[in-house]
Design a protein around this nucleic acid. Structure first.
Length: 272
DNA sequence: CTGTTAACCTGAGTGC
DNA sequence: TGCACTCAGGTTAACA
């Protein structure tokens, strides 16, 4: 489900609902999702206050007062929901529950592609975080960086931008949208993209991500913010999910192709 | 190293 | 109503 804008929206929702609150009890209702959930998580998180919420690409870190951190990745269908008061009853696929004095935070993930892990106070790194590339909203993303990484590569631009080891945070929706705004065909070999196009792409990626964050993300199937609010950026999608519908720029029907087993949407007229 | 495919898992939607 | 099939905001081990 969630790409950078949805995870950022989730981070903001967490700051509004659980930041500076004390976890009275952490309940594990399933011991493994994509990976095993460390069983000691319940003990190390109990009685701890959450003093910071960080986002690293699509990962969330809930920082505890003793320095330990709870690492969360939402996978395809993961969701964090805060339910105020005492009326919470566990729902199907609620795997981890954080109890607070005024409510609970539930991690729900039907497909179980998500991750919940624990970093103890003494460890600085995590293997899932160590391999991540640059943050697309930082100054690290610029035309020179792209030109260097794209050089001589035959992989299609779609795959290149989906690679979290290069740029960490984009996914299927925002890659399709950014390539449209930069007028680049997703099938183009990365090594053939010009510097002028790379510059346009940098602007397009930032613009799309920032607009999506402002809209609270894209709510298609599973995604909702921490308080249940839906995002509305899906209304601004120009290509994603719009197969056979008219391009908003030139009226040509949007085309759906499959790249590496994933749907890619493009306007064959606008993107070259 | 580079690039592609299959696999992980559940649920919603479609067509017969 | 049931069944078979396709598809879904992600990641990665295994392969050519």
């Amino acid at each position: 489900m969630p790409e950078l804008p949805e995870v950022e929206t989730t981070a903001r929702g967490l700051r509004a609902s659980v930041l500076n609150k004390r976890i009275t009890r952490l309940e594990l209702r399933r011991m493994a999702i994509r990976f095993p959930i460390p069983p000691q998580l319940a003990d190390v998180a109990a009685k701890q206050k959450i003093i910071r919420i960080d986002r690293h690409s699509k990962y969330l870190l809930l920082v505890l007062e003793h320095g330990g951190r709870i690492l969360v990745h939402l996978g395809m269908s993961g969701r964090l929901s805060f339910v105020r008061g005492r009326k919470y009853v566990p729902e199907k696929h609620d795997h981890v529950i954080l109890h607070f004095a005024d409510g609970v935070l539930a991690f729900n993930d039907a497909r179980r592609f998500g991750v919940v892990d624990y970093l103890s106070p003494d460890v600085a790194s995590h293997k899932l975080l160590d391999v991540l590339g640059i943050d697309p909203l930082s100054d690290d993303l610029n035309a020179d960086f792209l030109m260097q990484k794209m050089a001589a590569r035959k992989t299609p631009m779609k795959n290149f931008l989906m690679d979290q080891r290069i740029i960490a945070g984009l996914g299927n929706i925002y890659v399709c949208e950014a390539l449209f705004h930069a007028r680049i065909d997703p099938r183009r070999a990365a090594g053939t993209v010009t510097k002028v196009q790379a510059k346009k792409l940098v602007v397009a990626i930032r613009k799309v991500l920032e607009a999506a964050i402002t809209a609270g993300g894209s709510s298609l199937r599973d995604y909702a913010a921490v308080g249940g609010e839906l995002g509305y950026f899906q209304d601004s999608h120009i290509v994603y999910g719009r197969e056979d519908e008219k391009c908003r720029k030139c009226k040509t029907p949007i085309m759906r192709i499959v790249q590496s087993g994933r749907s890619t949407f493009l306007c064959p007229e606008c993107q070259k």
